[in-house]
């Protein structure tokens, strides 16, 4: 078993916030940019520096983007063997970089790969990991990162700290923080780190891969969310979404029941969205879900139960059966379309 000696203590830290930069399709993933934006704000109040850590291959351009989005510097580790994410190899690389740089804070996006990396890294560093934070604050006097998580049955917010061990690690889901403004005039240093990476770090290999279209609910202007009350009939929601140029999301029960992909789960353990309009169909309004649509400009709720809590979190509430409402809205949209043609 692992010999737990890897981390460092608060007295050995540097006043730096590091953001793990995860490459997306051909740009940095949105959650990496969101974290850079938040890290910049935290750093400015406390006089810390923000550094991005970017691991992969052929990523120089993305490093420049990170500077434009708020990083003071980017540490780049490139190796052809790192073209694809591999949690053991990436953990080895990140460990070496972090032990050399000794940041006070290390932030990771709570994506599939980010979760795996953060989980391994925290144990290797023998430090705390606050997962799925909904807000972060930095107490400048104590140098302590205060992470906010919702949970414990919903409606309650807990503040978590990691007083002694370093780095202070938190993960944040996509969409929780707004995208920072891209400022191409910002200057920063990009440095290549040389890391020792033996082949034995690669204990798994990908034999075959078939990518789906990436779903990104965080960027949708109109979001239609279905809950258990939709009774699995998500096809009708997708049809409606097409008419409204919308995306379809869901609460956890239909995801657990296999009616819709997990990527589309909205809420605390799904994605946090910031659409102009969120339409909630057959959803009771559990707090775990509500955090996912709290940043919507307008919330519309349709539920057959007049007393459903969702109505307290909605701008417009409609007491109706989803199975009647959806076709009625479809018909009305169709009429509107025909109307505008004449």
């Amino acid at each position: 078993m692992l010999n737990p000696t890897a981390g460092y203590s608060a007295s050995e830290e540097k006043q730096e916030i590091w953001v793990y930069l995860e490459p997306g399709e051909d740009a940095l993933s949105s959650v990496s940019l969101e974290l850079l934006g938040k890290a910049r704000l935290l750093a400015d109040t406390a006089g810390y520096e923000v550094k991005g850590l970017l691991v992969g291959y052929g990523l120089l351009e993305l490093a420049e983007d990170a500077i434009s989005c708020g990083a003071d510097a980017v540490l780049l580790v490139e190796d052809q063997r790192l073209t694809q994410f591999n949690v053991e190899a990436f953990t080895a690389v990140v460990t070496q970089a972090v032990l050399e740089g000794r940041p006070s804070i290390f932030l990771v996006g709570a994506t599939h790969d980010g979760r795996d990396l953060a989980g391994r890294l925290a144990v290797r560093m023998q430090t705390g990991l606050n997962a799925d934070c909904t807000d972060l604050a930095l107490d400048p006097d104590r140098g302590i990162l205060v992470s906010e998580v919702t949970g414990f049955g919903g409606g309650i917010i807990a503040l978590l700290e990691c007083p002694k061990q370093r780095p202070q690690m938190s993960t944040v889901r996509p969409g929780v923080f707004p995208l920072p403004i891209h400022d191409p005039k910002r200057k920063g240093e990009i440095s290549q780190l040389k890391i020792d990476l033996p082949d034995t770090c690669f204990q798994t290999s990908v034999l075959k891969k078939e990518e789906y279209d990436l779903v990104d609910l965080t960027q949708a202007d109109v979001l239609i969310c279905g809950g258990r009350g939709v009774e699995g009939n998500f096809d009708s929601l997708f049809a409606l979404a097409q008419d409204l140029s919308a995306e379809v999301g869901a609460t956890r029960p239909p995801v657990d029941d296999g009616f819709i992909a997990r990527e589309r789960q909205v809420g605390q353990t799904g994605v946090v969205c910031r659409p102009k309009i969120a339409i909630c169909l057959g959803i009771s309004g559990a707090f775990h879900f509500i955090v996912g649509i709290e940043k919507a400009d307008i919330v519309i709720a349709v539920n057959s139960d007049r007393e459903a809590p969702i109505f307290d979190y909605a701008d417009y509430g409609i007491v109706a059966d989803v199975a009647e409402f959806v076709p009625a809205l479809n018909r009305a949209l169709l009429e509107r379309k025909e109307h505008s043609r004449v």
């Binding site: 023998q126 430090t127 705390g128 990991l129 606050n130 205060v146 919702t150 919903g154 409606g155 309650i156 917010i157 807990a158 503040l159 978590l160 700290e161 990691c162 007083p163 002694k164 061990q165 707090f287 955090v291």
Partner: peptide, 10 residues
């Protein structure tokens, strides 16, 4: 290593 330092209603 992590400690809960506060709890409040959302």
């Amino acid at each position: 290593p992590t400690v809960v330092t506060g709890l409040r209603e959302a």
